[in-house]
Every structure is written in structure tokens, then in C-alpha cells.
């Protein structure tokens, strides 16, 4: 079953094709969602909502035709994660940006010992807002302006969040001696 026939089936609301699409993308997308929340259960909830959006809006995919299917689905998952965060604001305190630092490109090379699970567990403790901005910028590679729009905050605040997030993570990685 190639991707074209899967997509065609999904457009026809064919459950088997939807399952095929789910199967091929779920592990990656669960990894994406897990970055934004604190447990696999939460990540699965977010991913499920994301897939529902994917199936409902699949006819819109390819209209603008600027991205691959993978990045399209991923952006839906990321947006779903941000929505989820907004609905479940847990630890977020309105932080007033005190200083805007110049941010050098993130160059830390990490040993291969640094396992993703360990890193994720570390990031579970990261302040929510910093974590989201860090993910969006460092992993997803969005521009600051895009992130500012996504999280509805000024660009400078986003920069401060990113700076603090990096500081926080570097410190924790050092502490944990990863």
C-alpha cells in the first residue's frame, strides 16, 4: 500500500487507510507530542486529537503545497500540543522579561550517552513556557516571529524564555552529569 493510495483512502474516510497512516506516523508523532507534556498518556491524548485534525483536514493538505506530509502532520501535532498547554496551564507563571541577552547558536555537543528518555525526563521539570519555546526553536526550528505568534507573546519575551530554557537545561545536564 503506497502513500498515495493511503491518502486517497483517508480522503474517502476509509478506516483501514486511516489506520495505515496512523501506523506509519504514530511513533514519530508520539515522540513530538511527548516533548511538550509530562507523560506518555498525555502525549497519546494530544496525538489522538492531532490525528483527528489530520483526518478532518486532509483535503486541505497539498492546497498550499509547501511542505511534505511529515512536516504538515508534525505542525498539526505541535499546534495541538500548544493548545493542550494553554488548556492545562499548570506551572506557568507570567514571567517578566528582565533582560534580553544575545543568544549564541546552540553548539553544545552531547555525548551519545545522553539518551532521549533521560533528556525527556529532565525536561519534564523544565518550566513549561521555556520548554515549549525551547522545543519550538531548538528542535522544530521555527523562527522567533513564528513562535511569538504561536504562543501569543512578544518576540523579546520568547527570546528570554529560550535563553532561560537553555541555561536551565545546561545546568541540569551538568548537574546530572550526563
Amino acid at each position: 500500500m503506497n502513500i498515495e493510495s493511503i491518502l486517497e483512502g483517508c480522503l474517502k474516510n476509509d478506516r483501514k487507510a486511516q489506520y495505515a497512516l496512523y501506523q506509519s506516523f504514530a511513533p514519530k508523532m508520539l515522540g513530538v507530542c511527548r516533548r511538550y507534556c509530562n507523560s506518555q498518556e498525555e502525549a497519546e491524548d494530544i496525538m489522538m486529537e492531532g490525528f483527528i485534525k489530520v483526518f478532518q483536514k486532509l483535503d486541505q493538505y497539498g492546497k498550499k503545497n509547501e511542505s511534505t506530509l511529515y512536516t504538515w502532520i508534525k505542525s498539526i501535532m505541535v499546534n495541538q500540543s500548544i493548545d493542550y498547554f494553554r488548556a492545562h496551564k499548570r506551572r506557568y507563571e507570567a514571567e517578566v522579561p528582565m533582560e534580553v541577552e544575545t543568544i549564541s547558536p546552540y553548539t553544545d555537543d552531547l555525548d551519545t550517552r545522553l539518551k532521549a528518555e533521560h533528556l525527556l525526563r529532565l525536561m519534564d521539570e523544565m518550566p513549561e513556557k521555556q520548554r515549549i519555546v525551547f522545543n519550538l526553536r531548538e528542535v522544530e526550528g521555527y523562527e522567533f516571529e513564528e513562535i511569538a505568534e504561536m504562543v501569543q507573546e512578544p518576540v523579546n519575551t520568547v527570546r528570554v524564555h529560550l535563553f532561560r530554557g537553555r541555561q536551565w537545561l545546561q545546568k541540569r545536564i551538568k548537574e546530572e552529569d550526563l
Partner: peptide
């Protein structure tokens, strides 16, 4: 490997 690589390539089994 960088944090980005680790996180970006991380897959989980639902």
C-alpha cells in the same frame, strides 16, 4: 549528537 538530533529522532511506541 545534539539535543535536537536526540529529541527529533526520538520515537515512541503508542
Amino acid at each position: 549528537s545534539t539535543i535536537k538530533d536526540i529529541l527529533d529522532s526520538h520515537e515512541m511506541t503508542p
